[in-house]
Nucleic acid binder design. Structure first.
Lengths: 228, 228
DNA sequence: TAGCATCTGATAGTATTACTTTTATTTTTG
DNA sequence: CAAAAATAAAAGTAATACTATCAGATGCTA
């Protein structure tokens, strides 16, 4: 698995960048260090000028890779969802039992990214934290419909669609498979955030994981609909 | 109900503002028109300078009410959650059946705000749209822990706590009442957003409401745990 | 290996944002 | 009516979010 992932290149809509950051050493340093900096200071306080200083390069050079920092965020979140999608597909495609398959999928989507599998220059542990804290900013904008049309969210949408299909495979009578799939994905991010900042608003902690919560939520819903 | 709400003043943590916007005509125009403008242009493009121009006042006068636009957003979202809380309490406190009570609560939390009950100078229809599009930006910041300590999110937290208690009243054995409550509230905003911008990621539309989805989700979870 | 293209870095410049400060004017209220 | 408070106007600052220009380094290619 790790071996497979090391040869993987997540393919991202090429309209998101001006020049592929994977195509050069500078591009990789931009990605590597933007992940570190956005984690440290948050997306709002992060600027290309600061990043340039950190990597010993120039603001104008970074602008040759990304139009603006919003596009960079789209790149990072797309990469994360693509990475998750690979994990999902590799881990579930050999499972024939539909319930087991969905259970595994929920586990992958909702778990905390803990080990640093050091995927090339990208630190997925830090990136997963960025996704928890910043993902919704990537689509809660006035340009969302335009950007959606251009395909900027296609990886994310494909991931939701995969979960949706797995839900349908478990219970084709269930009326809200897409809503349930999107609730798992966004809800997991939210529960992780609450765990870190609003512990009174969640039951999730070290023992009681978001995985457990969402697994029960989903299977209670799907079983009940069959039986009841 | 409408009569009651017209005499209502949502009380907001007084550290959020420098001067209470309810205390003057200018303050009310700031609130009224910021709601209109944030809806039109989105929170990122909204500035106090533009607002000043729109209300025929000066940027510097607005700064006497709010330190910055982030605080104004906290004010608006707090107001919204306070308004929802009132509706929740008024609509549910006479219901003794715990399931009926929770059902009503879910309805109030998840429904589309449609009629303009013209609460003074605040357009709740527009405000509810702002909450869908901008709410998460109010807490997905680097200052969240500091602001949480100062009580900036207390109304929101109290609302989640109310739903949590109702869930426990229905099924005291259920293991994730807080997570379920926070999932309903944030999940409802998310489903409304998807309905408007990513219709393939939700089953919610005109016929199939978020209320229906969440009502089923919650009661399937709570019933199953009792019975199974 | 000379020549050309491409990439990167440095500098400077612009418009806007997010304020702060000061001063003048208007409004309120005691 | 006078004093106090609120508001408006103007000017200033530092940072942001870029764009444009040019020079030097690197690399490939005939």
């Amino acid at each position: 698995m790790k071996f497979l992932l090391q040869n993987l290149k997540v393919s991202i809509n090429d309209k998101i960048y001006l020049k592929d950051p994977e195509s050069s050493a500078l591009g990789k340093r931009i990605i590597e260090n933007s992940i570190i900096m956005i984690n440290q200071m948050g997306f709002e306080n992060f600027t290309f000028k600061k990043l340039g200083k950190k990597i010993g390069s120039n603001e104008s050079s970074i602008y040759r890779y990304f139009e603006n920092k919003h596009k960079l965020l789209l790149y990072l979140t797309s990469w994360y969802w693509g990475w998750l999608e690979y994990q999902l597909v590799f881990s579930t495609n050999s499972i024939s039992n539909t319930k087991q398959k969905l259970k595994k999928a929920i586990e992958i989507i909702t778990r905390t990214v803990e080990e640093d599998s050091s995927f090339s220059h990208i630190n997925e542990v830090l990136l997963s934290k960025i996704v928890v804290n910043e993902n919704s900013k990537s689509y809660l904008t006035k340009q969302v419909d335009k950007e959606n049309k251009e395909g900027y969210f296609s990886i994310y949408k494909r991931l939701v669609a995969r979960i949706t299909d797995m839900i349908i495979d478990v219970n084709h009578k269930y009326k809200h498979p897409s809503s349930l799939a999107s609730t798992i994905i966004e809800g997991a991010l939210h529960q992780h955030f609450l765990k870190d900042h609003f512990s009174s608003l969640t039951d999730c902690n070290e023992e009681n994981s978001p995985t457990k919560y969402f697994t029960e939520l989903v299977f209670n819903s799907l079983n009940n609909t069959i039986n009841g």
